[in-house]
Amino acid sequence: MDTRSQTVGTPSDLGIRIRERRLGLGLSIADIAQRTGLSRERIVHVETRPFALTGRELAQLSAALDISIGDLTGPHEPRTPQRPPLAPVLEPMRKEECVKLIEAGGVGRIAYSGADELMVIPVNYCYLNGLIIFRTASDSVVAQYDLEPIAFELDFTDEGLQVGWSVLVHGMVRPVTSQEIDVARDRVKPWAGGTRESYMAIEPHRFTGRRIRSW
């Protein structure tokens, strides 16, 4: 295959097709980056702006999205204004789908009872051996918890395409063991400044998820 840089079809149409296929499979940008070896920035560029693909990149995206190159680059059905848009459909997700989305890691939200009110804060996390692990300051309220109830939430939305999903995990939070710290140390790095050396683990009891589609 010719690996010279080439523009494939109409860039905006192909970018839309790649994005719709990815979302339809429930894959994140991080998933596609891992499957193809391309950077996340490159995937975002392909999905959102005019671009030129090499033959190798096209083959990598085709394999990652489990679709033939012909189907991926073939004629794109025009969206006729005469046909009314499909009403968004809300679908429940199985536990396996929820876990797959969480496995990518990144930024989620935890919800727990503070001293006087319910607290909801974003956290960097990793998913390790069935545990959701995050780091926090040693003097934070949640750092003092040991087998206390907690909720974890992760979501994605695209306002333009009116699609998205949300995963909610209920479980108990506790300090991690020294062995768990050794494994998780390089996998979860808080973006916020300051010292956050208290590693906490969420033991999931229940996974629920919903996905909204517009096609």
Results as ranks from 00 to 15, higher is better:
residue 1 M to D: 13
residue 2 D to G: 06
residue 4 R to V: 15
residue 6 Q to N: 07
residue 6 Q to S: 06
residue 6 Q to Y: 07
residue 8 V to Y: 13
residue 9 G to H: 04
residue 9 G to L: 04
residue 9 G to M: 03
residue 11 P to Q: 01
residue 12 S to L: 12
residue 14 L to Q: 09
residue 15 G to Y: 06
residue 17 R to C: 03
residue 17 R to D: 02
residue 19 R to H: 15
residue 20 E to L: 06
residue 21 R to N: 04
residue 21 R to V: 13
residue 21 R to T: 15
residue 22 R to D: 01
residue 23 L to K: 10
residue 26 G to K: 15
residue 27 L to A: 10
residue 27 L to W: 13
residue 28 S to W: 12
residue 31 D to R: 13
residue 31 D to N: 15
residue 32 I to M: 07
residue 32 I to S: 05
residue 33 A to Q: 05
residue 34 Q to L: 03
residue 34 Q to N: 06
residue 34 Q to E: 04
residue 35 R to N: 06
residue 36 T to I: 14
residue 38 L to W: 05
residue 39 S to Q: 07
residue 40 R to N: 08
residue 40 R to S: 05
residue 40 R to Q: 10
residue 42 R to K: 11
residue 49 R to C: 01
residue 50 P to N: 11
residue 51 F to D: 09
residue 54 T to N: 09
residue 55 G to S: 07
residue 55 G to M: 09
residue 56 R to E: 06
residue 63 A to R: 15
residue 65 L to E: 00
residue 65 L to R: 09
residue 66 D to Q: 11
residue 67 I to Y: 10
residue 67 I to T: 14
residue 74 G to I: 15
residue 75 P to Q: 00
residue 79 R to L: 00
residue 82 Q to P: 00
residue 84 P to D: 04
residue 85 P to V: 08
residue 87 A to T: 12
residue 87 A to S: 08
residue 88 P to N: 02
residue 88 P to L: 03
residue 89 V to C: 02
residue 90 L to E: 00
residue 90 L to K: 01
residue 96 E to W: 07
residue 96 E to C: 02
residue 97 E to F: 02
residue 98 C to W: 04
residue 101 L to N: 02
residue 101 L to S: 01
residue 101 L to F: 00
residue 102 I to L: 11
residue 103 E to Q: 13
residue 106 G to V: 08
residue 106 G to R: 10
residue 107 V to A: 07
residue 110 I to Q: 03
residue 110 I to K: 05
residue 111 A to M: 04
residue 112 Y to N: 00
residue 114 G to F: 09
residue 116 D to A: 07
residue 116 D to S: 12
residue 121 I to E: 02
residue 124 N to I: 01
residue 124 N to T: 03
residue 129 N to L: 04
residue 129 N to D: 08
residue 130 G to A: 03
residue 132 I to D: 03
residue 132 I to M: 07
residue 133 I to Q: 01
residue 133 I to H: 01
residue 134 F to N: 05
residue 138 S to D: 04
residue 139 D to P: 10
residue 142 V to T: 10
residue 142 V to N: 09
residue 143 A to C: 14
residue 144 Q to R: 14
residue 146 D to Y: 09
residue 150 I to C: 11
residue 150 I to D: 03
residue 152 F to A: 02
residue 154 L to M: 12
residue 156 F to H: 11
residue 158 D to R: 12
residue 158 D to A: 07
residue 159 E to W: 08
residue 160 G to H: 13
residue 160 G to W: 12
residue 162 Q to H: 12
residue 162 Q to T: 15
residue 164 G to F: 06
residue 165 W to G: 08
residue 165 W to E: 11
residue 165 W to D: 08
residue 166 S to M: 13
residue 167 V to W: 05
residue 168 L to S: 13
residue 173 V to N: 03
residue 175 P to M: 11
residue 176 V to S: 05
residue 177 T to G: 04
residue 178 S to M: 05
residue 179 Q to A: 09
residue 179 Q to H: 05
residue 180 E to Y: 03
residue 182 D to T: 11
residue 184 A to P: 00
residue 187 R to D: 02
residue 188 V to Y: 12
residue 193 G to W: 01
residue 193 G to A: 09
residue 194 G to M: 11
residue 195 T to I: 14
residue 196 R to E: 01
residue 196 R to K: 15
residue 196 R to I: 02
residue 196 R to Y: 01
residue 199 Y to D: 05
residue 200 M to N: 09
residue 203 E to D: 09
residue 204 P to F: 08
residue 204 P to R: 07
residue 205 H to R: 14
residue 206 R to V: 11
residue 208 T to E: 14
residue 211 R to P: 10
residue 212 I to H: 12
residue 213 R to I: 14
residue 214 S to L: 14
residue 215 W to V: 15
residue 215 W to E: 14
